[in-house]
Each structure stands twice: as structure tokens, then as C-alpha cells.
Design a binder for these strands. Structure first.
Lengths: 198, 198
DNA sequence: CCTACCGATCGGTAGG
DNA sequence: CCTACCGATCGGTAGG
């Protein structure tokens, strides 16, 4: 074992690269993310960045994984051990707060890169699609776990996720924070309908 | 006046360039659209493409305008002279059919480029944002013109547009046409609620 | 992690 | 519309 801390510094550099990469990609996309630009911004050499990943595709995949960890920390973990309606509400509120506080400057990282890669093929697209499936499935399952739900969980999940996504999209495109109020009203009304006693 | 048809051929070439540009951009984005690639695919020289626009930004702006004309022809014009609830329904059905039939291979052109440019600055982003404002305003106005509407038109328009956008996004990302059924059910339920007599 | 490269492609220009 | 260029930047490699 080396004791001069070289490995440790290497991992720290890698984390710095990925943090910056996720920030850039949320604005410019994962293709617009260039190794040369990352190197310039982080004040290391281009091959210094390159050596951590071996190819641009691996850099993109590692960036998606890093963004997924941030998403989990900011949206899913805070929902904690809540169950039933409280859990669903916490996940939805958590997502809206995550988008609104601009954890990523271009809004939700996954909205940006999904639209960029949705019509392509390859491992990057696949990893993004898998993340999206997991998120929607999480919301569907949380909806299904609400006692006496008066709605199809999959249909309700579709509608709820639609409100979140449009709020993020329109707030970034129009610099308009008011759309979050529309999204919160829509979520509230949908949950009220779905939990109304027959 | 020239009578050898040179100007006419020039305009035809320009139209061909823009049609191809809109198709490419719906998959690869307006930045991924390169003048060299357009030239290769259309079998003309790179400077032959360039001469029509003078800069990449002008090519991008012309592509947005060309896509807007296609959108109007496919979604808005078919709604014709219908009024009230019928007009709103025709616009929403028309949009879902336009997305589902893949007028653009990457799904709705404007969804793709909005996500690409939403966090940038400049004339291309401004033209895309203006188009989006116009579309949402069209839906809000159509909703407001429904007699005895039992909902806030702006809130209803937000929810309806959200269903359309998520159906497009998820059908492209997951090659899953079933999401259109979710969107149509959500639209139907929202319109039923909004037109229910008190 | 570095310097020093490679071929390919980018947007754009000159001159016709 | 063409050929023939330009400087800049891209992802990636060699060799340390």
C-alpha cells in the first residue's frame, strides 16, 4: 500500500471531475460536455481528465451515475421511512424542491439528458432510460401503497410525474418560478381525488 | 429577371436543407446538427449549405421556423374552425397524433430543442421559448373559450400540456407507445372534470 | 498526473 | 452552387 495519499488524491480528483461534469451536462448536455473544457475549468491537463475514464462514453456513464447518487440523496433519502400517502407526498414535494432549488443549474439533470439521448442508441441512453424507469416505478409503487387508493396507480403516477416534469421544463425555459405553483396545485388536486372516500 | 430558374432551384434547395435539418435536430439536437453532415447527406458542398444561411445560428433559427410551420400544418390547422370544447379536444388529439406518428423521428421537435436550449442564452433559445409560450397560450385560450368551464383555464392548460409532453418524452425514451393511452385517459378525465355541471 | 502529438471534424472565408 | 483553404477544437494515443 502506498502511504503518500496518491490514490486518495486520485479519487478526490475524480469526484471533482464528475461533480463539474454533472453541472455542465445539465446546461450543455452530455455531448456538449468536452474533456478539454473540463480540463480547462478544473485546471488540470486534458489527458489528466481522460486518464480517469478511458473514453468519452465512460465519462458520460460515470457522470450519469454521479448525478443519480445526487438525485437519491436529495429526493429519495429525505422521504425516509414514511409510508402510505405521506411517503408519496414527500417524494413529490422533494422532487419539486430539488428542481426548484437548482441543485443542477440547468434544472433536473435527468430531464436534460433524457431529451438529449431519447432518440439515440447505446449504453448512455440505456442507463438514462433505466434511471427513468426506476423513478416512475418508485412513484407507482408509492401510489399503490396508499391505503384505499381510488385510482389506478400507474395512471396516477403518469399524471403526477407529468406535473413535475413540466414544472421543471417551463421554469428553466421561461425563468418562471410560478409554474411550480401550478404543479403543486395539480399534485394536491390529483392526490385529493385519489384519496377521496367513495 | 433571370428566366433560367436559378432562383427557384435555390429556394427548393433551401427547403430541402431545412426539412432535413429539422429531422436531424429532433434526434441529435440543434447543436449536433452540423453543416458538414447536412452537406454530405444532401450531396452538396459544405459551402453550398453555408451560403444559404451565413452562420450556424441563422441555420438553427431557420430550422426552428421551418419546424414551426410543420407544427402549425399538422396540429393547429386541422383544428379548423371548431369552437368551444370541440376545438380544445381537436388541438389536444392533434398534438398526440402528431407526436405518435413521428412527424419528426425524434418525437416532437420542440420538446427536443427546448430541453437542449432551455438553460442557454441567445436568439435560438428566445425563438424556442416564444414558440412554447404561443402554444401554451393557445391551449389556455381554447380552454377559456369552453362554455361554463369549471376550472381555471391556466391551471387546466398546465395539466393538459403536461400529459402531452410526458407521453412524447416517455414513448421516445422507452420505445413504448402505451404511454399515449395514459395521456389520452388523463386528458379525457381532466376535460370531464372541467365540464361537469356543478 | 504531465507534454506532445495524431487524424478528423467543426464553423467559417476567399475567390470564383 | 463549386474547390480549396483557415484556425480551433474534438476524442484519443504515446511515452513518461
Amino acid at each position: 500500500m502506498k502511504v503518500d495519499g496518491r490514490v486518495e488524491r486520485g479519487e478526490q480528483t475524480r469526484r471533482q471531475i464528475l461533480r463539474r461534469a454533472a453541472v455542465i451536462a445539465s446546461v450543455e448536455g452530455l455531448e456538449g460536455l468536452s474533456i478539454g473544457r473540463l480540463a480547462t475549468e478544473l485546471e488540470i491537463s486534458k489527458s489528466g481528465v481522460f486518464a480517469h475514464f478511458g473514453s468519452k462514453e465512460e465519462l458520460q456513464l460515470a457522470t450519469v451515475r454521479a448525478a443519480a447518487r445526487i438525485f437519491v440523496d436529495e429526493v429519495i433519502t429525505p422521504a425516509g421511512a414514511a409510508t402510505g400517502l405521506a411517503r408519496l407526498e414527500r417524494l413529490l414535494d422533494g422532487w419539486l424542491a430539488y428542481s426548484e432549488r437548482r441543485t443542477f443549474p440547468g434544472g433536473c439533470f435527468f430531464y436534460s439528458v433524457q431529451a438529449e439521448f431519447d432518440a439515440r442508441t447505446g449504453r448512455v441512453r440505456d442507463s438514462i432510460a433505466e434511471f427513468d424507469r426506476g423513478w416512475v416505478e418508485l412513484i407507482r409503487t408509492a401510489a399503490a401503497d396508499v391505503p384505499d387508493l381510488a385510482a389506478d396507480p400507474a395512471q396516477l403516477a403518469f399524471e403526477l410525474v407529468a406535473y413535475l416534469q413540466l414544472a421543471n421544463a417551463r421554469s428553466v425555459l421561461h425563468d418562471d418560478p410560478d409554474v411550480y405553483a401550478h404543479a403543486r396545485a395539480a399534485v394536491r388536486a390529483a392526490l385529493d381525488r385519489a384519496t377521496r372516500r367513495a
